[in-house]
Design a binder for these strands. Structure first.
Lengths: 235, 235
DNA sequence: ACCTGAACACCGTTCAAGT
DNA sequence: ACCTGAACACCGTTCAAGT
């Protein structure tokens, strides 16, 4: 648009030629910083110091960008999962799987937009299949039949990758002022009671109503429990 | 755009005045028929025989339309859940909850786009809170503490409304031709083994690899099991 | 009060043209 | 080979004008 000046040359980082890798890294950074809605072809181009149309030489279209950022994030997960200190699957499949799932979760907590993108993909990414292949490997080493391992994948669902989409986030939870709770009590008596009870248990309220990490681990352990029970019962 | 003619008068259904209710019903029908991407303000207007701008007299904006279609679907769920034959919660909380969840699932199977919209809402809809209020009511009647009921909501997550977003749908499952499986075996040995085993169990293949309804119920029962175990253990 | 057309500020993407 | 500007067919939405 405006002609390039020497000033541009000096303030810009050295002119690296565009590449698929660089486009995708920029896309992840952009989504981290400004959210998923900010990830448009035009803004992404701006981010790498090019015009929107230049991107099309390195990615087929926007869907390919979204596939690509999934690839980047799953790369980070694969690396984190490899590095994690965990017992051998043959000795303790639960410990092995639990540690890996929590490591994956740590990565997704740094890319909060990623679960939504992951769920929007219509064809399963090879990297997702590879991740689940690792999960099945752990289960097999822990003594699961293929059949029960298959069921385990369905029970775990996205939790195997360390996240669950929460539909229900009680709004008044952080600031449960008496008035809002009172209005709520009429329409949602059970929820209101639950909230009141939680506040009572923790009068300072500093912990907040929902400690998501705690809840995630509680749910994960309940499921791992149930799977272990099925494993020893069946076969 | 083109002037109205008598022919239009005759072929159109009788001119009902626009209303929020009518706009939202049309939005649900449109999404059912042509998918979520087809749900644009312009196409929606066309659907009710008006211009796009006319919609704004009945809904604030597109977000309000999405909130509205959630409202409609949750209305259907509330009706289905009320009608379902289920044991009394005080006698059998598991049976009571299970029947309601499967009834909710039936509704969502008729509106497959609805889970994605539900998950896209940034503020929790009052209708979602009302639904979860009912769930807590059942758990309380079944002898749950507020604390354990709260955890149960987190464990169930969207499964309480009858759906789970599946990240992992093995593609070759429906047509596991030998070549594709062989290519897969190298990169995803465990998944390939799982697929091969499943095919072996069901040589006709008519059932397909994943019976989602079966898997949904298996996972649901595993979770209800685990919750019952926590309930009798704790207190 | 209810509805509308034109217009605005955005999208993703195609195409023909530049170096 | 790589990048670009203009243009196209869409979005959601504002505004001033119609009945």
């Amino acid at each position: 648009m405006t002609p390039r000046t020497d000033a541009d040359e000096l303030t810009e980082r050295p002119r690296v030629p565009l590449s698929r890798r660089r486009v995708l890294r920029a896309a992840v950074e952009l989504a981290d910083r400004d959210g998923l809605d900010a990830l448009t072809m035009r803004r992404l181009a701006q981010e790498v110091g090019a015009e929107a149309m230049s991107l099309y030489h390195h990615v087929a279209n926007k869907e390919a960008v979204l596939d690509g950022v999934v690839e980047v994030v799953l790369g980070e997960i694969a690396a984190a999962v490899e590095d994690v200190a965990a017992p051998a699957a043959a000795d303790d499949w639960r410990g092995a799987l639990r540690a890996r799932i929590l490591a994956a979760r740590d990565v997704l907590l740094r890319h909060r937009w990623a679960p939504a993108v992951l769920e929007s993909r219509t064809t399963t990414s090879p990297d997702v299949i590879a991740y689940y292949d690792g999960v099945v490997g752990i289960l097999r080493a822990g003594g699961f039949s293929f059949d029960l391992a298959h069921r385990a994948l369905h029970v775990l669902g996205s939790r195997a990758l360390g996240f669950t989409q929460e539909l229900f986030r009680p709004d008044g939870a952080e600031a449960p002022d008496a008035e809002a709770v009172a209005g709520m009590a009429e329409r949602f008596p059970n929820i209101a009671g639950m909230l009141a009870d939680a506040v009572h248990d923790d009068p300072d309220g500093t912990l907040g109503f929902c400690d998501d990490q705690f809840e995630f681990e509680f749910a994960l352990d309940l499921i791992l429990d149930g799977l272990e029970r099925r494993r020893t019962a069946g076969s």
